[in-house]
Design a protein around this nucleic acid. Structure first.
Length: 340
DNA sequence: AACTCAATCAACCGCCAGGTA
DNA sequence: CTACCTGGCGGTTGATTGAGT
């Protein structure tokens, strides 16, 4: 027989946490810290085991958690790290500020795995699936074929976005397009009130597409706000299909806090100077609403020679030419070598 | 409107490693 | 060295939600 479960004591509650339980736990840890987890439920007045309290705090109540969809850069980082170290979710989570191992594990199992298979990549070995098919048993081959059928059916259901840019690996563009679809009908935020705790993610997510269909310059980015009970966040990211630079700004009810959970991609290219610095000085606008962000982005784009900013009801596109040296120089940090 | 099915993700379970008496 | 305790980890489950019919 294995070890007895830690929650087998009569009277200890299991299952989903109530708002009241959350409040008790948050209040206690805020005031006293968690110390010994076994003592936490007793001292906080909770009928839970310490382990349950620890998981609830770690995976859901911690104030430094990010919420919402993972960004393109985060997803790419997860894929890269998984290829390097496998299912070591806590190690992977350590590289993604504000994300939990549980969240990443779920995201991997429900989305990335599927997506890699659709791209013909085995999510376990990160090698092309055709190789696996050649090496697999008849039963495994049958399974893979069934997966292919499912993929085709899914692809038929997912109508491609006509505006979608094709890139060599498609990672960022695909993600941006996916994120766009459910939000095409979103009205731009008007009179956004930072103190208003009722704003929601659906109402506040908008995207930026920065691309040039004729020149080959392809930039994409998005901004999103994520609502949670205790903290709100604004994040922004820009990518060129192979690397993405992201930054988020944590916001508390008391005001704006530039928390900046940065992934390694930012530092890699050192792009926090120009042009993002011009956005950084506008943190208040970022946090106050995406209209301001859009205006800021629009202003920056339009000051570039030979650039045009097009507004498509919340989604944006920039048309530019590769023939202008200054534009190339300023967009350079976001471009692959072969695009320059 | 009712039903089915798939997707999502919070929560649980059992195991392991490290620390300590 | 051993036993025990605790925190952490990865795999899995099951309730909920949304899409499709």
């Amino acid at each position: 027989m294995g070890r007895q479960p830690c929650c087998d004591k009569v009277g200890l509650k299991k299952g989903p946490w109530t708002a009241e339980e959350d409040r008790k736990l948050v209040n206690f840890i805020t005031l006293h810290g968690h110390g010994c987890w076994r003592e936490v439920p007793k001292l906080a007045g909770l009928l839970r085991c310490g382990k349950s309290c620890r998981l609830r705090w770690t995976n859901y109540l911690r104030p430094d958690l990010k919420r919402g969809l993972l960004s393109e850069s985060e997803e790419k980082l997860i894929i890269d790290l998984h290829a390097a170290i496998g299912n070591r979710w806590s190690r992977i989570a350590a590289q993604l500020p504000g994300r939990t191992d549980n969240e990443i594990k779920n995201y991997w199992n429900t989305r990335i795995k599927k997506k890699l298979r659709q791209m013909g990549i085995d999510p376990v070995t990160h090698k092309p699936l055709t190789q696996m098919q050649m090496q697999s048993t008849p039963a495994q081959t049958l399974l893979l074929q069934e997966n292919d059928t499912e993929q085709k059916q899914q692809e038929q259901h997912n109508e491609p976005d006509p505006d979608q840019n094709q890139s060599s690996n498609g990672t960022v563009e695909t993600l941006v397009s996916r994120a766009r679809e459910p939000h095409d009908d979103i009205e731009p935020l008007q009179n956004f009130n930072m103190e208003d705790s009722n704003f929601n993610m659906e109402d506040s997510m908008q995207l930026f597409n920065v691309c040039s269909p004729t020149s080959g310059i392809s930039l994409s980015g998005r901004t999103e706000e994520v609502d949670s009970d205790d903290s709100d966040q604004v994040s922004k990211s820009f990518g060129n299909g192979s690397s993405t630079h992201s930054q988020y700004i944590g916001r508390e009810s008391s005001g704006v806090k530039a928390e900046c959970g940065l992934s390694g991609w930012d530092q890699m290219a050192g792009v926090l100077g120009d042009p993002l610095s011009e956005w950084n000085v506008d943190l208040e606008s970022w946090a106050a609403g995406l209209d301001a962000t859009a205006a800021s982005a629009s202003a920056w784009i339009q000051q570039l020679p030979d650039c045009q900013w097009n507004d498509f009801q919340g989604d944006f596109e920039i048309c530019s030419s590769k023939s202008c040296p200054e534009t190339l120089q300023r967009l350079g940090p976001f471009l692959d070598d072969d695009e320059l």
